[in-house]
Design a binder for these strands. Structure first.
Lengths: 244, 244
DNA sequence: CGGATGCTTGATGTATCTCAAGACGTGTGG
DNA sequence: CCACACGTCTTGAGATACATCAAGCATCCG
């Protein structure tokens, strides 16, 4: 369970507001998305499966989900996290077949939104479209950043980078305090996202604690020294494209 | 040098035609893009640099380029290849700052297209927009596929996967024959794209040759047995989203 | 001819994976 | 209420895949 139990459209509004100033009219337009059915999903279940034909847009309200791909022999790579307030695949419904799966990492709640319903919101407030496309490009940027991390950074640098990224992303949707955030996923999830074995991920976490970079227990991540963590990670936040 | 010396808009037309049937009117509309200045770039030079403010759209005509990110200490990760006929960042000009660099891997030639010029083409043939967005989503899918490769596949599987992907992508733009394609980049580039050291990449290539999967010399890659290569790579081409 | 670029090979060290087991907490059914 | 299964985190031991360092060779080009 996340701390935010029923924030509805608020995280999304905050998210889009990072890219351009939004008005009250934008908020009310977005609120129309809450008309869709509110769905529940248990932890460790799929929300959508590779190969399916996507017909709805999903807006995550609470809990964490992920985009992942798996190989026939069971190996699995998480390619992105979905945080509350984020869409699972805005555009994907124009494709005929999903090329990846979407899974719930914790218990989740999300709205299912019909494409037409979505279109109505855009028609009403066209400037929201720009903010949404912007967010899509940020999503691409995140993918690239992960690729660099997995391809070039050491496990310690990699985890540091991920934690800094999550810190900023969660702050954007109002889910991080000044010192840290709720990290409701397991070490195994972190391993699958970072291309590491569970054992080695665990040892890397211990090293980070030993180095005084973070504290982590009871699903609470506390960042001891953000600047140092960013230096270790060689973090450059330009790919998150915050305008203000 | 690639085999295709001056194909102009043709590779792009073939590329978009993979997503939906196009008409002659679409081709002539696209031909307007050739009005922009035709630029040249040498191998191992940057076309655009991280941090710059992008103002033009670039359409690659000949040669190979790449999207890459580098770390302060010199490590570099290639996150995608640009093949002839592909755009370097269609949407990116609405962002204020590039979050990655674009580099020429071989000698390249490309058109620089003004956003307005591009808009005119879309206005003239609105259906092209859908094909272009489709391609953007394929690009995202490729990023995800690379993430899975680097995160989960062994070097041998990873290289196999890349070669199969390149084979299909090059066939799409008319640059692959039934048995292989021109691979004008260095082993160092392949290493940087796959998150491997040059030495290990070299030995992996030798293993692939020994296994009878490929032949590679003089920048010519020959695929001996495509089905077997796909099996080794656990290749599922759904992420390329060809409609036909 | 000398320098740059790219490919190849050998030797060595170590980072990371794999296998295996134990501890702890939580929920569940008998 | 206890026994048990399950999920999660942790630790140890051993094997190996991969990086690093170093050198040699070929080709091309000014």
């Amino acid at each position: 369970m996340t701390t935010l139990t029923d924030a509805g459209i608020e995280p999304l509004f905050r998210l889009l507001g990072r890219y351009m100033p939004l008005e009250q009219a934008d908020r009310t337009a977005l609120a129309a998305l809450e008309a869709g059915p509110l769905c529940h999903g248990d932890a460790r279940t799929d929300i959508a499966r590779e190969g399916e034909n996507p017909t709805v847009i999903r807006l995550l309200v609470s809990g964490w989900a992920c985009r992942y791909k798996d190989l026939p022999d069971g190996r699995r790579q998480i390619v992105d996290f979905f945080l509350p307030g984020e869409f699972c695949d805005l555009n994907i419904y124009i494709l005929s077949e999903l090329d990846h799966s979407i899974g719930a990492l914790t218990a989740v709640r999300y709205y299912e939104i019909q494409p037409q319903q979505f279109q109505d919101v855009i028609d009403q407030r066209p400037r929201l479209l720009r903010a949404l496309l912007w967010h899509e490009m940020v999503t691409s940027g995140i993918q690239r950043a992960w690729l660099v991390s997995i391809g070039q950074r050491s496990p310690l640098e990699r985890l540091s980078h991920l934690f800094v990224e999550l810190y900023y992303r969660l702050k954007t949707v109002g889910l991080a305090t000044g010192t840290g955030f709720d990290l409701p996923i397991t070490q195994n999830h972190l391993a699958e996202a970072n291309g590491l074995s569970l054992v080695h991920l665990n040892r890397t976490l211990q090293e980070m604690r030993r180095e005084g970079l973070i504290e982590l227990s009871d699903r609470q991540l506390k960042i001891i020294d953000l600047d140092r963590l960013k230096r270790v990670a060689m973090f450059n936040g330009n790919y998150l494209h915050f305008n203000r």
